[in-house]
Write a protein that binds this DNA or RNA. Structure first.
Lengths: 133, 133
DNA sequence: TATAAAGTATACTAAAACCGTAAACAAAAG
DNA sequence: CTTTTGTTTACGGTTTTAGTATACTTTATA
């Protein structure tokens, strides 16, 4: 029932970029976030592919926050790394529920779905700017 | 960010026992819940050690719901199998947060903690009796 | 009281997910 | 044209998950 370390690191990394408000090379991001360089690069790649950061190649290259901290949410960051925020596997599209009890959708699934949506909404309402001075 | 299959199965199993309102041998529980006998036995042992079900040994033995369905909650069942309901590993007692940003406890950790508590409270407020006719 | 039907306990294993690491490559600044 | 950076793909160790196996104990009942 936990987000992955990788998603947690993604939050740290983006926090560093948002606080800095400028482009930073991956090595600096690694140092300031406390995430190893290699792993930070992997995470930065995912963030770049989602348009959350932009990368600049070559000497004096690096990464910069692309999204507006007032718009970028914790939920978006976490889902970028971990995939959909669902508290039970039965909520995934591919899952075929065989549990008895209800007509069309089992009652447990319904409440898991509602709780997932609530949690997801809250994480999406928490913007990165809320965590910067 | 998901509960385990095992916790999901525990809910199914307890639902069967609550709907039946009587002792059932493990084989029947397995058949009606759709959980393999071996795995169901493992789960039933954990439920028994928490006092959620009681077991009767020997021929014509089986398992019976020990808790009151009006008191027994989804949260209690899930934590019985999966451990504490925390959405980030940084919330566990043993974790030493090194993240910069705040005086004593980092802001991210605070919101993860609040969200975990909210989710946990909701799962504890959902009683098994809410899912029985 | 024998025996078969149940649960108990411990340990094992296969597969998946997680958490990184390695190496070869491509782009761009100076 | 060389050095510094990012890019891509693949690899691998560790942990968790999910489920199984085996040997055992207990007890109803014939």
């Amino acid at each position: 029932m936990r987000i992955t370390h990788e998603a947690d690191y993604a939050v740290r990394i983006v926090y560093v970029l948002a606080a800095e408000k400028k482009m930073l090379p991956a090595r600096d991001i690694s140092e300031r976030s406390g995430v190893t360089l290699r792993f930070a690069l992997k995470i930065l790649r995912k963030l770049a592919s989602e348009g959350i950061v932009v990368s600049y190649k070559g000497a004096s290259g690096g990464y910069e926050l692309a999204a507006d901290p007032k718009e970028l949410s914790l939920g978006q960051l976490i889902e970028c790394i971990d995939g959909p925020l669902e508290i039970n596997h039965c909520l995934s599209d591919s899952f075929d529920c065989t549990r008895v009890g209800d007509k069309r959708i089992c009652r447990f699934r319904r409440v898991f779905s509602e709780l997932s949506i609530e949690l997801r909404d809250k994480l999406y309402s928490l913007k990165l700017s809320d965590f910067i001075d």
